[in-house]
Amino acid sequence: MSTQRPMVEVRGARKSFGAVEVLRGIDLSVDRGQIVAIIGPSGSGKSTLLRSINHLESLNSGEVWLDGVQVNQPLHGQAFERHINKVRQQMGMVFQHFNLFPHLTVLENISMGPIILKGMTKSDAHALAHSLLSKVGLADKIDAYPSRLSGGQKQRVAIARALAMQPKVMLFDEATSALDPELVDEVNAVMKQLAAEHMTMLIVTHEMRFAGEVADRVLFMDGGVIVEEGPPGDMFRAPQKERTRTFLKKYLSA
């Protein structure tokens, strides 16, 4: 396993918004099939790190690699545009606020990527959408518009939409933070199913219990750096750093 190249690699990532440095030198390597949970207080840079991986934020310095290909290649203009569009097709991103397309049905939301970007035939794309919807338990919603769905259903459709591109890695940016508590489990169940299928995943989350159940590794970020990382058992039971202990105490007692 050690000779295998990592699926996702971040080297020396730095990012500032104006005078505020949000990422202050992040190094991270995620193996194929590994599931990494990123935890930390608001403003710690965990979402920015995730968004930098598929270049929704561009780093000030540092490199991001996906399966041996540099994501933030030093290309310009149209050349970079072509490159990044190709790379993003290989990464699924799931957002806190779902970002489904409200003017399209569930079926169209899921199938438009494969049809337009991969040149898949309509019937193949629709069959794919159907099977993905069955997987997330929403086959009966295939013709619904997103506005008719609950938050949990929207997020499951959003996951199906990302999976339709057959990505190498899935990035979850607080996928359950906007959901009513009783809807969180149905989304977590889908993520657990992906974990069981050995999908490589980076999960930014505030849910320590879920992180503990699903992740192979937990990263604690604060102030734009990775303070501490380890297997969930060690991280939650015996964190080494004082900063981690304080943070976890607040969360686990809540």
């Binding site: 545009e81 569009n85 190709k86 790379v87 993003r88 991103m93 957002f95 970002n99 397309f101 970007l117």
Partner: peptide
């Protein structure tokens, strides 16, 4: 149109123009 719509489309791999054409403009018109 919410910036999340553009981010959603770009994250799938749509280019700037594809995003405008298939996601942003249809919603703006509606």
């Amino acid at each position: 149109v919410d910036v999340g719509q553009t981010e959603g489309a770009r994250s799938i791999g749509f280019g700037k123009w594809q995003t405008l054409r298939h996601v942003v403009i249809p919603q703006a018109i509606r």
